[in-house]
């Protein structure tokens, strides 16, 4: 049986933990709104770029001399997994889910006889992936030193990836990043980013007009400029999704933690009151017994 003083100490310590989790929850809720707005604001650019890509790629597709980024290196032996994790913890199972997905992909690729390496974005994925693949980490990008990773970070990552690709360090790159569904669910998804997958062209209203589109300087030159930008946009989207996912997961996790702390405080308070009562009762009995003995 813990002494009264010990119990009181524990109650106080749980109370201050609750204060922290509650504050973190409120901060996450505010940041989540901002992150969601940012993710939404980025959508027009991504969808327009995809549209332009679609119409251009349909023209260049089928030609053997297309840009390297679209064609690929001709082999699919070496795979690079670009894993986007968060920089901060306190966000529930988000990071371990991302790492789990990445390892799953890596194992599937290795089972198919491919070699796998990792490119890590964000701090929290490093340790768990290094544990399983001590030599597999090719490079990484630290987003921890900026407050909200933006387009500049995305283009820096894309530049590095493209340099690695041009230097022939890998054949295929996949992006493993969380996809923000809502504050409760964030699913890690894997998408291929290099070579750029040929967009499934939907025959629609644009098809008829495209026939007479004039290109300046030329279709291939435009496509060559467009592809790196497309990769950047994909990474930028992943960073935004990560931001929203992190805040959403953090909000949910901290909400749970606050509630658990509340329950624990109640339990401890009851225990504290009981032992206090017991102590008083024993004291009284002692006094009465002492008085009677006289």
């Amino acid at each position: 049986m813990a002494s009264l003083k010990e119990l009181k100490g524990r109650i106080n310590s749980v109370k201050s933990t609750q204060k922290i989790t509650k504050a973190k929850q409120m901060v996450a809720a505010a940041k989540l709104r901002k992150a969601q707005a940012a993710a939404e604001a980025a959508r027009p650019y991504a969808s327009r770029l995809a549209e332009v890509m679609g119409s251009l790629a349909a023209k260049v597709a089928g030609q053997d001399n297309g840009p390297l980024l679209m064609r690929g290196t001709g082999s699919d032996q070496r795979h690079l997994l670009v894993v986007v994790n968060t920089d901060k913890g306190l966000c529930g199972g988000l990071n371990s889910n991302i790492v789990k997905e990445a390892k799953l992909q890596a194992r599937a690729l290795e089972a198919a006889g491919k070699t796998v390496s990792f490119y890590l974005v964000g701090k929290k994925g490093r340790a768990p992936i290094r544990r399983d693949y001590p030599n597999g980490i090719a490079a990484g990008y630290d987003t921890g030193n900026v407050r909200t990773p933006g387009f500049d970070e995305a283009s820096a990552i894309a530049r590095e990836l493209l340099e690695m690709f041009e230097a022939g360090k890998f054949d295929v790159a996949h992006l493993v990043a969380p996809e923000f569904k809502n504050a409760l669910t964030q699913l890690p998804v894997t998408t291929q980013i290099i070579p750029v997958p040929a967009p499934t062209n939907t025959p629609g209203s644009s098809g008829a007009i495209d026939a007479v589109v004039e290109y300046e300087p030329g279709e291939e030159e435009i496509l060559e400029e467009l592809l790196p930008r497309y990769v950047t946009t994909q990474l930028f989207g992943a960073l935004l999704e990560r931001e929203a996912s992190e805040q959403g997961a953090s909000m949910t996790a901290m909400d749970n933690a606050t509630r658990n702390a509340g329950e624990l405080i109640n339990k401890l308070t009851i225990q504290y009151n009981r032992s206090r009562q017991a102590a008083i009762t024993t004291e009284l009995i002692e006094i009465i017994a002492g008085a009677e003995a006289l």
């Binding site: 332009v52 251009l56 007009i209 495209d210 007479v212 589109v213 004039e214 290109y215 300046e216 300087p217 030159e221 435009i222 400029e225």
Partner: peptide, 15 residues
């Protein structure tokens, strides 16, 4: 080079 776009411009794409 610079180009001006008015309404009804022919479909066109440029960097």
């Amino acid at each position: 080079g610079e180009f001006g776009v008015l309404e009804g411009h022919a479909p066109f794409m440029s960097t």
